[in-house]
Amino acid sequence: MSVEAPLERDDRPRLQDWAWPRPTRGALMVWLRDWTAWRKFYVSSLLAHFGEPVLSLLALGLGLGLYVTRIQGMSFVEFMGPGLVASTAMNAVSFDLVWGGYDRLHWTRAYDAMMASPLAPEEIAAGELLWQATRAVLYGGFFLLVLAVFGLVRSWTALGVLPVLALTGVVFGGPALAVASLARAEEQLSYYFSLVIQPMFLFSGIFFPVERLGPVLRTAAEFLPLYHVVRLSRALVTGAWRPEMAWSLLVLATFAALAALLPVGFFRKALERIA
């Protein structure tokens, strides 16, 4: 770094730094950039994100499953499958934008190059969130397909999982871009995974019904977005859709709106920092 790098800067975003992501034609071009880059290595990338849920399914389902009789009238594998669709989408989105976002800010500086063009930060953010919606559908959908092949999908309503996954992409994309923008060092990125993503994975009702945890934890789970994705996914895959599920859909949509609003202020400041 040159000596010109300022010693001190006011890094806190102000109110006027925040904005909704702006889905313009420019944002679509950022989406196209991500698609173009992804297409080069999609097979290995899909397989990499596919391995983990499959191993969970095998190890827990077939191993631990021997000791678990039935959960809510389902075998353990049937119970877990739809939940793992949800977590696969969450992981695929979080890894891509937390690490990739940091990468494009600080290592390859691809965002710095975008900022030479008339693209605004809120357009870049919109493109990234659109791409994460796409990714969530691709990765979650791929795992759903595998479940179908193994006969674990009971109803055509399972197709309804795809739009839910798109929302999931935005729900986890927003915080991912915020974390990538806020981090001052690479190590800080992993805190997000150990403190947020991993607990979310364990307590969102993928492996056991959260309802059994008692009223306090049961209420706490309502605040985990992944819990609602898991509920919706399970209901749609097993064909047990009930009108009460609309609540989860509403909560998830609210989370998506908040998640979309979250990153732009931090992202704008990060772009100024690397200018």
Binding site: R25, R33, T36, T108, A116, P118
Partner: peptide
């Protein structure tokens, strides 16, 4: 109406040379 070549390398490592130019053109509309 301006072109910028920055001091640090900021090429898009996920894209080929050709794609780097095409996408950048698309960012400009």
């Amino acid at each position: 109406r301006m072109g910028v070549v920055s001091q640090e390398d900021n090429l898009d490592q996920g894209l080929t040379s050709f794609e780097n130019l095409v996408l950048h053109g698309l960012y400009y509309g």
